[in-house]
Design a protein around this nucleic acid. Sequence first.
RNA 1: GCCCGGGUGGUGAAAUGGUAGACACGCAGGACUUAAAAUCCUGUAUCAGCAAUGAUGUGCGGGUUCAAGUCCCGCCCCGGGCACCA
Length: 799
Amino acid sequence: MSSSYKARTTEQKWQKKWNSSKLYKVNLASKKPKYYNLVMFPYPSGDKLHVGHWYNFAPADSWGRYKRMNGFNVFEPMGFDSFGLPAENYAIKTGVPPQKSTEKNIVSMIKQLGAMGTMYDWDKTAVTSRPDYYKWSQWVFLQLYKKGLAYKKDAPVNWCSSCQTVLANEQVQDGKCDRCSTIIIQKNLYQWFFKISDYSEPLLDNADLDWPEKTKIMQKNWIGKSSGCDIYFKLEDGDDVLTAYTTRPDTIYSVTFVVMAPEHPLLDGLVKGTKYEQEVKEIRKVINRQSIIERTSDTGKDKIGCFTGKYVINPVNGAKIPVYVANFALMYGTGIVMADAHDQRDFEFARKYSIPLKFVISEKGEKIDPKDFQGAYTGDGILFDSEGFNGMNNRQALPKMIDFLEGKGFGKRATNYKLRDWLLSRQRYWGAPIPIINCPKCGEVPVPDKDLPVVLPIGNVDYKPKGKAPLASVPRFVNTKCPKCKGKANREVDTMDTFICSSWYYLRYLSAKDKKQAFDPKIIKKWMPVDMYIGGPEHACMHLLYARFIHKVLMNDPKAEPFKKLVHQGLITKDGAKMSKSKGNVVSPDEFVEKYGSDVFRMYLMFMGPFTDGGDWSDKGITGLARFVERFWTMLDAKETKVVDQKVMKISVHKLIKKISEDIEKFHFNTAVASLMEFTNLGLKNGLDKASKKIAAQLIAPLAPHLAEECWSKLGGKYSIFDSKWPKYDAEFTVDDTVRIGVQVNGKVRGEIEISKETTQEEAIKLARSNENVLKYLTQGQVVKEIYVPGRIVGFVVK
RNA sequence: GCCCGGGUGGUGAAAUGGUAGACACGCAGGACUUAAAAUCCUGUAUCAGCAAUGAUGUGCGGGUUCAAGUCCCGCCCCGGGCACCA
């Protein structure tokens, strides 16, 4: 007679024991092989941990436990990415300093993480908003500054004229401020950038990374390398030259107009004092309100622009062609687009504004005219009306045309990247202040390392910006001394993008005890790169690219990579939407943990589906896991069970070892749990000996750590199960003696035969033919082919 | 719009090109119980049939193959990202 499993008390007992025995304290100097198991650290939101966090962290912890049982010294740290917008907005609303609300959230999240029963070593943590962390974020900024990778330039921000503040994209809804509905405009501010574009090539080199292929492709597309040509368009009057970059110089004879970005620095000069000045101003005002997605969206009605009154010369044919301003031209690259009939967007714009168009490519080189077409001819083909290039295939002509343009001085071969420099200035309070002092005499002066951190003032701050960043009203920021000349100077009042803080935290976790450096080069050398990095796919292009960039810079090695292997967990939604406080659809794990225990809850999340898929939250089915834990407990707890068949038992145990090991290696936790259920259903029926029970406890240990530790201890295992060795399977016992396979006739299953693993093709086919139902179909024609895939299928083709 | 994913029973899902629906939830029936809960047993893609079996079936339309959820081409729908949410 076995008693039922008391999840909550058992879990608390083991959590206590794990703590008091310091089971998860990691010795970074240990000689065991290292394994750095990292998850993306959370933002300490007021919603605390939700089921999405659990969905992410629990399997990641299971993975760490699995690696530990496989003999690795697993380092599994946890921290908080605690700067950011929500705490600042909360402060604006309530006056509570972000330091206070953030630290409070951290305390409750640590408590929740404890209830989860994870292996985190809290001696080694990182909280980005604490001065002992952001001191070093500022130091990181200065490293980039000293390498010439930080610079300032004008860049637009979302500006709400009513709130007198900069808005995040998230705060702009349909072009309006989400608080006061004022129409948002783009306003230029002088801001800091990191030259990530200098690292385009090293960042493209990702062949050695064990990352999801889709993530690598997304990064590659984000960096957007293309090769093409700059083409110079001289103004008809005046000396200015408009340089356009194109990947399609083969269409140069088709170019009938040129489009400028509304933000182009030459634009004002071009239209100043002309009758077009007013119209350009008006159109720019409208475009100012559009988001980049709206501007580049490919649906015809959204394309807007106007004539500038200016003309440029198409260098190849001397044609005088008009210059337009349009929303779809962005101020990236040269900010000038050469426009022609072979591009759909250009074509539609030209139609809308009655600009002449001409084709120079057709399928066979026959002359075609845009007036007979509804849209652009975007295919490849044979060139015509292109002087020396007529009759050539456009793709083959392309490099020759670049040679021609270069030879004549009309242009220059060029490589282009879509990757833009990283804008890091934020006109906000809750971030790390940029460690630069502006001195009227000495100019930009970096804060000396000994004066770091530049501390954020606590309390007595007006978090709500009134036209200026909040720190602009803090006296010690406005009045300070220049470190060079000791004269009066002022500090930067902008703070840094939180992505900077999250670009190097994995190094901070590895600090030496005294923490007197940002990170310890000796420890880094041993422990980097991170062996497993787990986090959401939404970070594919930004965080993961920024971290790779910062790591390369800090390591002084363009080949250095921070994350060797990467896995993305899926997103957990509620009623189809991302969980967020504003939508009021955040689901807390606490009540489920209270009711069923952490093991049941984490296994339920794993059992929901593949880790990389995510899904919509529902607690339907959690009882299945509670039943399973109870059954598993009964199976291992029953004093003496009669083993029905030793060999059958042995095979089921070894098959399970193989299956669980393979599934965990592939992050298929869902099928690992399913196999354990199947095993339990059989084990309760057929009985298990003590050695097999101990193996079963070990196999469930990564997935249900408390349950496993309890079973292990009851079975007389030495504490802790997580210091025991992961069981090995004997291949001999992983194959059943006989299998049932299907018999197909012309691809349709017509019967089933049971054969042993030694059965030859002849025997299998003979057996299949003896099946009455199969025979029925075989006699309907001539058997022209016989197929035998051992262990899978017997097939006949009948004609 | 652009880039990247995904679409399988009532539900969550499983499936190296080889018997589609493992494992669960739910539901139905049964056992135990005065009763209920819990537990245990049986059934459960759809249609026809007592059954054997047959037909249909993995978003839609085509293709390759003895054999397609899986590979190829063209659509539709849903999700993530698009540079200030993190």
